[in-house]
């Protein structure tokens, strides 16, 4: 018994020492990303980007892998993340939580981003020509992807709204499959007749032969909108020195597909290159988010 007590005291001492051992942290840039395609590849090979940026920028860059949109916005708001590759909606949410945040860059594909609506062949829903045609989806069962996804939820819901199909116009409550791939799967299974997802994921899966096209097919491709972008906290210059923000932007924009290291990184993001962007690009997303109650 006495020995047990002694060990308990030891543990407490160790814990307290560990607690007080924090000390001065080195100045570093903490970044994260929630990509839309094969996130596990980037999240497990994140060292590549952090190393590349550290090399160019001259201060340490640390990558924190995350999967949850709300968690990454929360961490960003708290200041634990300095720069995050957000989706359109989460970027707007984050900018609202941290006013003054700067959109630094987007992928080339993000300028003309689209969602696709897919439907089971068994449902007999025919491909439609324009947004108004989405009316035919009313009364069917429908699933989105993740709740906070721009391409898997926000914009599809917006175009449905435009077609006059409100949130309660489906058969049963709409589902949230959790991801674009899961949306394909649950629609293929027939659980939902209609699904909405990111067009580039869809194209890629179809090209790779991973979609059973006898069971599920594309019925509509939405108009374009802006989606993913790198968002940086306004206090980066204070933390890492004047001009740090623009140097980071330059580093991102300077990734060349011709360079094998850069190419590898761009591939992980599903990008041809990173290009400049500006806050106005996300006004539409913000407006839609507001009208759907996703932006306060």
């Amino acid at each position: 018994m006495r020995r047990v007590l002694a060990v308990i005291v030891l543990v407490l001492t160790a814990a307290l020492t560990a607690a007080c051992g924090g000390g001065a942290e080195p100045r570093e840039l903490v970044i994260s990303a929630i990509p839309d395609q094969d996130p596990q590849k980037l999240q497990r090979l994140y060292g590549a980007l952090a190393e590349r940026l550290t090399g160019t920028l001259g201060f340490p860059v640390r990558y924190v892998p995350l999967t949850d949109y709300a968690a990454s916005v929360t961490a960003y708001r708290r200041g634990d993340l300095d720069m995050v590759f957000f989706g359109g909606l989460t970027g707007v949410q984050a900018r609202q939580q941290v006013p003054g945040s700067v959109p630094l860059a987007q992928r080339d594909v993000d300028e003309r981003f689209r969602s696709v609506f897919v439907a089971t062949t068994a449902s007999g829903i025919a491909p439609v020509a324009d947004v108004a045609g989405l009316r035919s989806v009313g009364g069917r069962s429908l699933t989105f992807g993740s709740e906070s996804s721009t391409s898997g939820r926000l914009m599809p819901q917006f175009f449905l709204d435009q077609a006059g199909v409100g949130p309660n116009a489906f058969r049963g409550p709409s589902g949230f499959s959790g991801s674009h791939d899961a949306t394909i799967a649950v629609v293929t299974s027939g659980a939902y007749e209609v699904g909405a997802l990111n067009s580039s994921v869809w194209d890629q899966r179809v090209a790779a032969g991973q979609v059973d096209t006898t069971k599920v097919r594309e019925i509509f491709r939405t108009p374009t909108y802006h989606d993913y972008h790198w968002l940086a906290r306004p206090d980066i210059d204070d933390e890492l020195g004047a001009g740090a923000t623009s140097r980071i932007r330059d580093a991102l924009l300077g990734l060349r597909p011709s360079d094998p290291v850069d190419k590898n990184i761009l591939d992980l993001f599903g990008a041809g290159s990173f290009i400049p962007t500006q806050p106005q690009n996300y006004d539409q997303v913000e407006q839609v988010g507001r009208s759907l109650g996703l932006v306060q």
Partner: peptide
């Protein structure tokens, strides 16, 4: 792990997102 706390749940969430069943 699903909310990004790390560990097996995080790896599971990642692989589940793309339905990589073998992982």
């Amino acid at each position: 792990g699903l909310i990004g706390a790390g560990g097996l749940g995080f790896q599971l969430a990642l692989s589940l997102q793309t339905l990589n069943y073998r992982e």
